[in-house]
Design a protein around this nucleic acid. Structure first.
Lengths: 243, 243
DNA sequence: CAGTGGTCTAGACCACATC
DNA sequence: ATGTGGTCTAGACCACTGA
């Protein structure tokens, strides 16, 4: 029987905390079955109702999912606190367009044009690093990402990016600049594909594409990154879940 | 003692639905104190635990807030539950495209086509009410809304809508059917305008438009409404704020 | 069939608010 | 002192799952 610290916190909270710990440390991996309420109640020396309340909170937070008759399973929590949580593009068969490695097209020094400078509150003509990547879905290029990072905030980004080629820019910003992105604002539009876009995405020119323009802010509320994501939406879409 | 319908739904769900109704209809107004669990349990002829579970769900959804020793209060849902909180369209000068009255084009009985039936989990061929509205920005039509409401959930919607012409469908659903919309899922795509759309929006045919397809769910998690919102994005955009 | 989670009951004790 | 919600227990019955 597992012992709990004799704090004043409610027992079900302590149980929840302990169960979360066991999930995080990998004792129960994503997709795996947890012991039944009865077993856990016995293990912790508590009633089933108390353990139930702990598990129900975890379920409501999406850490586990419950199925009557089968049991409680650890959710594959690729979903919530990972660096792709801002990525809203999904294929029409419900796969997130971010798992596969992005293809790096180029990474070069660039001047912030008006649209970028305004969004990131930079002096007009400020220097930075512009990176272009391509994302695939079902072996087909579906998304062009154009990413601008200001030189004054992210010095030497060009070389670091060319060396790292990270899957996630936000993981890269954490590692190299200690910048944690906590908020993004996106503007979504429909427009015709440019010649360059049509070429990269194997489209006809003037075909409709979705353009997402994003500004990412750090923990302190400072605008850090500007990017656009452009692609056709016949086999993928932008999904938004609101409550 | 209040009677509940002898359906197969769990009692606490029925109690919750009924309590929500009493809040919406103004029996208990924002800021007011609800009867105690004991009183309500007595009133409904159920155990305190069952009523408790109903109230706890309402609290977790922010409809009421609880204070030990004092009681349960209706949340002043001025800020959070307002009916336009799901409306993500803004003009490029940052005005929300929803304040002005929508122009009603038509409201007619219709059969749910495949896309609708699948999204709302209806039998193929189910009946319902299809409403088309137009929204303006700066004296120009910019958004076509096509709204489908199932007949079995929203009986007589056609006549009620033609009579009311409500600014907000969700306010309408609350008033007439006691349905509180708490969650929507949207899929956003870019595509070419159809002939009819081009005519209504003063566009050339095949011009790129943004299409937002939405499914709205009630408090109980049941899909209620299907709609699309279609428009050009040269003077407006779809904005998403993520943290 | 036995085991699981889902629902519902009926009690108990506690800390906190109010009067 | 009384009433509130917060926690905890111990049982009951159900529907669903899988062997």
């Amino acid at each position: 029987m597992t012992m709990l610290k004799p704090t004043s916190k409610p027992l079900y909270q302590q149980v929840k905390q302990h169960l979360v710990h066991r999930v995080i440390t990998g004792e129960w991996k994503p997709g795996h079955l947890l012991p039944s309420e009865t077993k856990l109640a016995e293990e912790y020396g508590l009633s089933q109702g108390t353990v139930r309340k702990a598990i129900e909170e975890m379920a409501s937070e999406g850490l586990v999912s419950r199925q009557a008759g089968k049991g409680t399973f650890v959710t594959s929590h690729e979903g919530d606190y990972h660096p792709f949580r801002f990525h809203k593009f999904f294929s029409d068969d419900n796969q997130r367009i971010a798992k596969d490695e992005a293809v790096f097209i180029s990474s070069r020094a660039a001047t912030a044009h008006d649209r970028v400078a305004k969004a990131l509150k930079l002096q007009p003509g400020s220097q930075g690093c512009e990176t272009i990547r391509l994302r695939n879905s079902n072996q087909r290029p579906v998304l062009i990402e154009t990413i601008f990072l200001p030189e004054n905030i992210c010095p030497d980004a060009k070389n670091l990016l060319q060396h790292d080629k990270p899957k996630s820019i936000y993981l890269f910003l954490e590692r190299h600049y200690n910048l944690l992105i906590t908020r993004v604002v996106e503007q979504v539009r429909a427009r015709a594909a440019t010649e360059q876009e049509a070429k990269l995405l194997f489209l006809n020119i003037n075909e409709p594409v979705l353009e997402v323009e994003r500004v990412a802010f750090s923990l302190g509320g400072e605008p850090i990154e500007w990017r656009t994501m452009v692609g056709p939406t016949d086999s993928i879409h932008y999904r938004n879940d609101l409550d």
